[in-house]
Design a protein around this nucleic acid. Structure first.
Length: 555
DNA sequence: CTGGGGAGGGGGCCC
DNA sequence: AGGGCCCCCTCCCCA
């Protein structure tokens, strides 16, 4: 009898131990997962720091190299002041870093291009690097030869331009443009983006000015805003984008890369970006268009530059060069990957801007990249279109048209402020700054009662009804009250019986879009949630939770 | 599963 | 110009 009791006792102990062991394993797994996530975050941050340090070192090396080149070949590098003003007699930009690179192969720079030197008067250093044309004989040999050589090599090696940027070209000090951050006054906490301006051989207005500075003394922002009639936020950065020639975007990579990029979205936008790299985007435009150029994914940007305002692309002038091939950078990273929720509407906004951008032939570096339609590369083109057609259904398109209207749809003159991230157009600077919080993650409005933060004041106000219990919207049919008008409207379908959402697989109709979405999983057989106790699978987490509560609550 | 509500994100428009 | 509002959409949760 005693033995029997002992066996039972041991059996019970064993079962308890098993349960405890299972629970412990589960807990451990959870902890490991959490710790691993933290570890990865810390690792990525450390990598960023390492890159920044490496960048500084390379900067110093580049600076030395540049000075050596300048000393040895003074005629090859010309410091310009006010190229823009000379070209058009317009704004006189003196407050930002500007660099002009003329690719040899493209012969984009006229040999007689007037170039002024006025280094002293510049409030900040403006390095204008002129790479002599292929027919540099007209200009003379000497200094240009080295640059030409450099370019030639770069064309042979797609990686080369990046090497120039990073200073990684082994053994050879890159004599091309270098943003001299070490010697340039850096009043901003955010590094400047140095622009590349190429002049088309057609000699049409193909300038692109890219400014991200806030040198208030001679700040182009003010000049710009003086014309546009919209006051800047104190730290705003702008991108003045003026009719960039489609030719100016190079395609070092073949179209297969574009395909690959389109196919591999996860790779493309999860690239860890180092804000410290930002100033070093002076290179061929190909690399400007790379992911390096556009590091402001919402995640990265918010991590690295939380206190920074977004950037704005301003379309100052639109001129379509009809037969000029639209441009594409094969290695660009689709910016839409940066959206936090990845919902369709976010894609829409991007795509909308992309499509409408065609109308105005505006191609920011990221834009050219993001726009598979605007590329001159046929494979990328078709592929991008297919991709978008797969992503966006007709409803989304309709919404894109009705909601966003796109970057420049309708009245392009009214929406000259473009979002740096998605190219969407806005009529006023403040509007685009608010919008760019979508990308930056900036939430300046915080609830005093629950510490929640919001990007918009009206959202905060709406949220505070949660605390006040205010429900100003009441249903006339049932006296139910709602805090949001949309909730009331949605609720009223209960009374009207309206079910605007119909399943394409069966004939079921739903009053709520979310319910249809959930219903569609029934047809798709998508059951990602598995019960750890019995292995049963569910399409929704809530189903799994309910199941576990009912069937395994004892465990 | 389905129905329904709470709450937040985002864009457009009006004043 | 900027705040506020309206609207649409989405996610999440619960019954």
């Amino acid at each position: 009898m005693a033995n029997c009791d002992g066996v039972v006792f041991h059996t019970q102990i064993a079962s308890i131990m098993e349960v405890l062991a299972n629970a412990a394993v589960t807990e451990i797994c959870k902890l490991v997962d959490d710790d691993y996530a933290v570890f990865r975050l810390e690792k990525s941050q450390s990598q960023k720091e390492n890159r920044a340090l490496r960048r500084k070192l390379q900067l110093l090396e580049l600076k030395v190299s540049r000075e050596r080149v300048l000393a040895s070949r003074p005629n090859s590098v010309k410091i310009l002041d006010g190229y823009r003003g000379m070209a058009r007699g317009e704004e006189h930009f003196t407050g930002c870093h500007r660099s002009f690179v003329k690719p040899v192969g493209l012969n984009l720079w006229r040999d007689d291009q007037p170039i002024a030197i006025n280094e002293e008067t510049a409030t900040s250093t403006q390095h204008v690097i002129v790479i002599e044309p292929a027919d540099a004989d007209a200009v003379g040999p000497g200094a240009s030869s080295l640059l030409k050589q450099e370019k030639t090599e770069g064309e042979e090696d797609p990686q080369h331009s990046r090497d120039i940027q990073t200073g990684a070209a082994a053994g050879v000090a890159p004599p091309v443009a270098v943003v001299d951050l070490a010697t340039t006054p850096q009043p901003r906490t955010r590094p400047s983006i140095t622009e590349v301006i190429l002049k088309s051989e057609t000699d049409t207005e193909t300038r692109r000015l890219l400014h991200t500075g806030s040198d208030h003394g001679s700040d182009p922002e003010r000049l710009l805003l003086g014309r546009l009639g919209c006051s800047p936020a104190p730290d705003s950065k702008y991108l003045l984008y003026e009719n960039s020639s489609p030719r100016t975007v190079h395609s070092h990579q073949d179209s297969s890369d574009a395909l690959e990029t389109v196919n591999d979205l996860s790779r493309s936008y999860t690239t860890e970006m180092d804000p410290g790299i930002m100033p070093l985007v002076l290179e061929t435009q190909t690399d400007l268009s790379r992911g390096d150029w556009n590091p402001y994914s919402s995640r990265i940007y918010s991590e690295g530059c939380l206190d920074k305002k977004g950037e704005v692309i301003v379309i100052d002038e639109v001129k379509v060069e009809g037969d000029a091939p639209l441009t594409c950078n094969a290695d660009e990273t689709p910016i839409w990957k940066g959206y936090s929720q990845g919902n369709t509407s976010d894609f829409l906004d991007c795509r909308d801007g992309l499509e409408t951008s065609l109308n105005v032939a505006i191609h920011s570096p990221s834009h050219a990249l993001r726009d598979p339609v605007s590329t001159s590369m046929a494979p990328s083109d078709s592929h991008g279109r297919v991709f978008f057609d797969q992503v966006f259904n007709s409803n989304d398109r309709a919404r894109a048209q009705t909601q966003g209207g796109g970057a420049t749809s309708g009245n392009s003159k009214e929406k000259r402020f473009l979002c740096m991230f998605c190219n969407k157009g806005f009529s006023c600077l403040q509007k685009v700054e608010i919008h760019q919080r979508v990308h930056t993650g900036e939430n300046p409005f915080n609830c005093t009662q629950c510490e929640k933060r919001f990007s918009r004041q009206d959202h905060l106000k709406r949220h505070q009804r949660v605390h006040t219990g205010e429900k100003p919207f009441s249903c006339p049919q049932c006296e139910k009250r709602f805090s949001q008008a949309g909730d009331l409207k949605r609720h009223q379908r209960v009374h009207t019986g309206e079910k605007p959402f119909s399943c394409t697989q069966c004939h079921m109709r739903f009053a709520l879009a979310g319910n249809l979405k959930m219903h569609l999983k029934v047809h798709e057989g998508e059951r990602p949630f598995t019960c750890m106790h019995c292995g049963k699978r569910f399409s929704e987490r809530s189903y799994l939770r309910t199941h576990q509560q009912k069937k395994h609550s004892s465990v």
